[in-house]
């Protein structure tokens, strides 16, 4: 794709960059090189979000733990105890929490990034930088919350005497998958939010629905193939089952087979996540040129 937008070409003999500004039309390249050139800004935006997130809150960073933890408690009571939802032979609380940790990372990333452009409109109107930096920084800042909640998850595994399997080496990939999904959906909504503030009402609603169509309170093993694999078109289904498999896989109850690798699910989820992300990024770039005028 030929890029029609402002191009920065370093001219070697002068070492002075030449920028050409002209109207762009249609789809544009992602210009990730420019996002990279502005990586220091990205770093500072992440740093700001992390610093500011829990300022002037009484409980501070413990909010990162409270949110998923109490959801786990409620799920354990109502789904685990009362409804008797199966949990792949695992203790229900740790079964639910292993899913809620990546889920919370995804859901907060999505919510915050969807509102990020509108929240930064004073920046967008006053200074130039690759706009992708804003929603991307917002999602990245959620990694700190994830780390805190993840520490609690490890504590819970210790409590239940569950040792992780060698499959934990897949965790970075699974986290990346959650990140890509969160950013992908976030980019769509962040761009739409600039023009249609309806997004502010849609997103919480969407997150709520998405929570229940993701196997968090229940296992995806309740579905038969091929439906289970198709289910992974929801990338979070792959992420959540992947987390359980990598961390808790060896701990299935006595007499049950250890969790099998959700390979096909992960493959489907990866493809779906990449599709959402690439679509979101291009859509974002397409609307980007109108942000400063419309927001």
């Amino acid at each position: 794709m030929k890029t029609m937008t402002a191009i920065t070409e370093p001219v070697v003999e002068h070492e002075v960059p030449l920028t050409v500004i002209r109207p762009s039309r249609g789809w544009r390249s992602l210009d990730l090189r420019e996002v990279w050139a502005y990586r220091e800004l990205l770093y500072f935006l992440v740093w700001r979000d992390v610093k500011v997130r829990y300022k002037q809150t009484a409980l501070g960073a413990s909010w990162a733990i409270i949110q998923p933890f109490f959801t786990m408690v409620v799920f354990s009571l109502f789904f685990g105890r009362l409804a008797g939802v199966p949990s792949d032979g695992l203790p229900y609380p740790v079964f639910a929490f292993a899913a809620l940790v990546p889920w919370t990372f995804f859901a907060n990333g999505l919510t915050h990034s969807a509102n990020s452009l509108v929240g930064s409109q004073n920046l967008i109107k006053k200074v130039y930088f690759p706009r992708l930096s804003i929603p991307v920084a917002t999602v990245l800042a959620g990694a700190v919350d994830f780390a805190l909640a993840f520490a609690v998850l490890l504590g819970m595994m210790l409590f239940y005497g569950i040792t992780p399997t060698a499959n934990v080496i897949w965790l970075p990939f699974l986290l990346l998958l959650a990140l890509v999904t969160s950013m992908g959906v976030g980019l769509w909504f962040a761009a739409l939010n600039v023009r249609y503030r309806d997004v502010q009402y849609i997103v919480p609603f969407l997150v709520q629905i998405w929570l229940f169509v993701t196997p968090i309170a229940y296992p995806s093993s309740m579905l038969d193939e091929p439906w289970r694999t198709l289910y992974a078109l929801n990338p979070m289904a792959g992420v959540v089952e992947g987390f359980r498999w990598a961390l808790l896989g060896g701990a299935a109850g006595a007499g049950e087979a250890p969790l099998s690798a959700p390979g096909p699910m992960l493959a489907v989820s990866t493809v779906a996540a990449i599709a959402i992300f690439v679509g979101g990024a291009f859509y974002f770039r397409r609307l980007e040129r109108t942000f400063a005028d419309v927001v």
């Binding site: 500004i21 002209r22 040129r289 400063a292």
Partner: peptide, 8 residues
């Protein structure tokens, strides 16, 4: 436009 905030 000069500061690339908006496109011409």
């Amino acid at each position: 436009i000069l500061s690339r905030i908006t496109e011409p």
